[in-house]
């Protein structure tokens, strides 16, 4: 029996479904660079069809109980297990206090994809137009990683090293994403798409604290090869969301955020979109 066309078959691999984190780590140690971890699989299966990845071993961690948890870590924040689907995260107010992430995830692809896809998978793809990384960076989130030598935690901003390039060594696995306690953080997400699921520009904003202690994070996605913060725009709204400050922030962002030319949009169009989405997101936050 032969199936489909050569373009839509998958490369040969051995499938593994570990039942514990230890078992998954042992498989990763055994197979090293030959192995790929699969969560929801929507990214990995698509990459394999295009032969962008051809692992000899696929390790499906969907049923690893340690990766299926969402838990509050006192004094630290909310730890989201790597195998929790985006659909599960959007249900039951799990992301209350993290509006920027909730808004970004609610618009990832479509409901059928979201019932499979995971936040960790979305992040690990590190594709420039993916929406969760800017939101995670704005919230100051970090990535929890386990290897046979122990665990480590790195900020999302450092985890993404470049397009499709992440700080994860062979033998290591992302076990979860840690969101710091929101402590009254006001946040929001905005993106612009041209009728496809690919963002042409996105912005994630988080405002924490008040008065002189106020901290602002404005992170732009899909405009460059990795998410970029814009200190000048952040500075423009540091003393409050007023109509004049919002205008200044939008102008600064449009001028300072580095935008690339590619098949989806020109740099000039992206700079225009940066201004539009900055204005939209900050105005929405003003009236919140």
């Amino acid at each position: 029996m032969s199936f489909g066309s050569p373009y839509v078959t998958l490369p040969d691999f051995a499938y593994h479904r570990p039942k514990s984190l230890d078992e998954a780590l042992a498989l990763l140690k055994e197979h090293g660079e030959e192995a790929k971890v699969m969560g929801g699989g929507v990214g990995l299966i698509a990459f394999m069809k295009e032969r962008l990845m051809s692992p000899a071993h696929v390790i499906d961690v969907k049923e690893v109980p340690e990766l299926r948890q969402v838990r509050h870590v006192p004094g630290k924040g909310l730890s989201i297990g790597a195998a929790v689907s985006i659909k599960e995260l959007l249900e039951g107010g799990t992301l209350r206090g993290y509006a920027v992430l909730e808004e970004a995830l609610a618009r990832v692809a479509d409901p059928m994809i979201r019932s499979r896809a995971t936040l960790a998978g979305n992040l690990c793809e590190a594709i420039p137009w993916v929406d969760s990384p800017p939101a995670l960076i704005a919230l100051g989130a970090s990535v929890e990683i386990a290897g046979t030598g122990g665990t480590r935690e790195v900020p999302v901003s450092g985890f993404i090293r470049g397009p499709v390039d992440i700080d994860l060594n062979p033998g290591e696995i992302v076990t979860g994403i840690m969101l710091p306690d929101p402590k009254g953080t006001l946040s929001a997400f905005e993106k612009f798409t041209a009728g496809s699921e690919f963002s042409l520009a996105s912005v994630a904003v988080a405002l924490a604290g008040g008065g002189r202690k106020r901290s602002v994070a404005m992170v732009y996605g899909a405009v460059s090869s990795t998410p970029v913060r814009c200190a000048e725009a952040e500075q423009a709204v540091a003393d409050g969301l007023t109509p004049a400050n919002v205008r200044r922030a939008a102008d600064m962002a449009s001028e300072k955020v580095e935008c690339v030319d590619d098949v989806l949009a020109s740099a000039a169009y992206r700079r225009h979109l940066v201004k539009v989405i900055t204005t939209r997101v900050l105005r929405r936050m003003m009236s919140a």
Partner: peptide, 8 residues
Amino acid sequence: LVKSCLVL
């Protein structure tokens, strides 16, 4: 509901 072209 899932898209069966993205499931093994």
